[in-house]
Amino acid sequence: MDRSNTGKLRVGIVSANWGATAHLPAWRLLGDVEVTAICTSRKESAEAAAKQFAVDRPFWDFEAMCADPNIDVIDAGTNPILREKMVTAALNAGKHVVNQLPFTASLESAERLVALQREKGVVGAAACSVVGLPHLALMKEMIDEGSIGEVYQVHCSWQMSFFLKIFPGFPYTWFGKSGLGVSVTRNQGSHMLHALLQVFGPIESVVGRMETQAKTWDLPSGETMAVETDDTSHALLRFASGAMGTLTTSWTAADSPGFHIDAFGSKGRLRLDALAYPSVASAKLYAAKSDFAIAPSGHEVPVPERLRRVDGRIVEADPNDGTGGQRVSLARLFEGFSRAVRDGGEPPASFARSLEVQRTVEALYASHRRKAWVDLTPGADLG
């Protein structure tokens, strides 16, 4: 694949919503990347987005964008059903791909995309900003170094109030529609599973329970919308290491208490906390040594500069960047992706890891249907 005259990786973004407001500024933190194109479904909106975000080339046909020889990477937004078509077209055109989460709408779709990515010999990753979080990287380093000894328990929770009240102009009411591959388990759950697999390794079996607790949404138009997707999910996890875990998530949780991962080991404890959305602006990592005590004694662990760098420099969180501080985490993720394109190897949140996450999500739904533990070993029945 030819590069531009500057030698930079040329990125085309599909989406004028999250792709433009969050991914675009993250890509622009990397000196070896240039975002050269943006695509929406209509000529008028594509041209308007290109002008608004100072992108040279508007597209309103994703197939034309994927076929363009002057684009190296497709960063695909929109819902999982449409994204599968976009990612397939991009891979068939020999493009490297950044896919959103949920990765796909089904395990079969995920297997098809991963097989095609491997066949074409290109790099693929999911845009999981939590994996790019410096605090998560430090947590993994400390666990790998034996800081808390053998890991016994892992608890992960993400509680947000996104859908307790629908505000005018909110663009994601389609998250309540079935058949599009979205739900709190598939969306927030996928991000959480990427983080857990990154730090604690494979999961071998699960129990899951999903509910739709807010049965209807009151829309600003005065209409009432029936909700067809789960908004609350609880799971038990058994890691291949022997550790036991829990995963709980909701997007109808009052007060949006945020995200945490709590790990208990034979020698101590690590807790990653983030009010609201996990980012460099909200996250903190706490550590404690094993000791008999009635009250917790953890202290905050500062993140070293080397883990806060993007393209060789420290980038501070911008409270006005419209991403909840995710720009830095996404940029670190994209930097790893760019490195994999340039030097080879697997990027963070790779397609292979995304397939592992998809299998775990499908196992959770299978468990919900069966009311039983579900095994995740290769060839296990997830129907």
Results as ranks from 00 to 15, higher is better:
97 V>I: 08
98 V>G: 03
98 V>M: 12
104 T>A: 09
105 A>T: 00
106 S>E: 05
107 L>K: 06
107 L>H: 06
110 A>G: 05
113 L>D: 01
119 E>L: 07
119 E>D: 10
124 G>W: 00
134 P>I: 12
135 H>F: 07
135 H>N: 13
137 A>N: 06
138 L>Y: 01
141 E>V: 11
146 G>N: 11
146 G>S: 13
147 S>A: 15
148 I>F: 06
156 C>G: 11
158 W>I: 04
158 W>D: 07
160 M>G: 01
160 M>K: 05
161 S>L: 07
161 S>C: 13
162 F>C: 11
166 I>D: 08
167 F>S: 13
168 P>F: 13
168 P>C: 15
169 G>C: 10
169 G>T: 05
170 F>A: 14
170 F>I: 06
171 P>G: 14
171 P>L: 15
174 W>C: 09
177 K>W: 03
178 S>T: 07
182 V>S: 04
183 S>V: 07
185 T>I: 10
186 R>V: 01
186 R>H: 06
187 N>D: 03
189 G>E: 02
191 H>K: 10
192 M>H: 00
192 M>L: 13
193 L>N: 04
195 A>E: 00
196 L>K: 04
197 L>W: 01
197 L>I: 14
198 Q>V: 09
198 Q>N: 14
201 G>W: 01
201 G>H: 07
203 I>W: 03
209 R>H: 13
209 R>E: 14
210 M>L: 15
210 M>E: 11
211 E>M: 14
211 E>D: 08
212 T>Y: 04
212 T>S: 10
215 K>V: 08
217 W>R: 13
218 D>S: 14
219 L>I: 06
219 L>A: 10
221 S>P: 00
225 M>L: 14
227 V>I: 12
227 V>G: 02
227 V>H: 06
228 E>C: 04
229 T>W: 03
